[in-house]
Amino acid sequence: MALRATIYKAEIHVADNDRAYYGSHAVTVARHPSETDERLMVRLLAYALWVEADERLVFTRGLSDTDEPDLWNLDLTGAIQQWVEVGLPDERRLLKACGRSGRVIVLAYGRGVDIWWSGVRDKLGRAANLQAWALDAEATRALTALAGRNMSLSVNVTDRSAWVSCEHGDVNLDLRCLRGEG
Rank of each mutant, 00 (worst) to 15 (best):
V120P: 07
V120S: 10
V120I: 09
R121N: 10
D122A: 03
D122M: 01
D122I: 01
K123I: 03
K123R: 15
L124Y: 02
L124V: 03
R126E: 04
R126L: 00
R126F: 00
R126N: 12
A127K: 10
A127W: 04
A127Q: 11
A128T: 07
A128Y: 08
A128R: 13
N129W: 08
N129H: 09
L130D: 07
Q131N: 09
Q131E: 14
Q131T: 02
Q131I: 01
Q131K: 06
Q131S: 14
A132N: 05
A132P: 01
A132L: 07
W133E: 04
W133G: 08
W133R: 10
A134S: 13
A134G: 09
A134M: 08
L135H: 08
L135D: 06
L135A: 13
L135Q: 10
L135Y: 08
D136C: 09
D136P: 01
A137Y: 05
A137S: 13
A137V: 03
A137W: 09
A137H: 12
A137D: 11
E138M: 02
E138R: 14
A139W: 08
A139T: 10
T140F: 03
T140Q: 10
T140N: 04
T140M: 03
T140A: 05
R141K: 10
R141C: 01
R141H: 04
A142R: 15
L143N: 02
T144A: 05
T144I: 00
A145W: 03
A145D: 06
A145L: 12
A145T: 09
L146D: 06
A147S: 14
A147V: 03
G148T: 08
G148L: 06
G148C: 08
G148M: 05
R149F: 10
R149D: 08
N150W: 04
N150G: 03
N150H: 11
N150Q: 14
M151R: 09
M151T: 05
M151V: 06
S152Q: 11
S152A: 09
S152I: 12
S152Y: 04
L153T: 02
L153V: 09
S154V: 14
S154N: 14
S154K: 15
S154I: 13
S154T: 15
V155H: 01
V155P: 02
V155Q: 00
V155L: 04
V155C: 00
N156H: 13
N156Y: 12
V157I: 15
V157Y: 00
V157P: 02
V157T: 07
T158W: 00
T158E: 11
T158D: 00
D159V: 07
D159M: 08
D159F: 10
D159T: 02
R160K: 15
R160H: 14
S161W: 13
S161A: 15
S161G: 13
S161V: 15
A162T: 03
A162H: 01
A162L: 07
W163E: 08
W163K: 11
W163H: 14
W163N: 01
W163A: 04
W163L: 07
W163C: 05
V164T: 04
V164I: 15
V164K: 05
V164P: 00
S165R: 15
S165P: 00
C166S: 14
C166K: 04
C166W: 06
C166M: 02
C166V: 02
E167T: 07
E167D: 11
E167G: 00
E167N: 09
E167K: 13
E167H: 11
H168T: 12
H168S: 12
H168Y: 11
H168D: 11
H168K: 15
H168N: 09
H168Q: 15
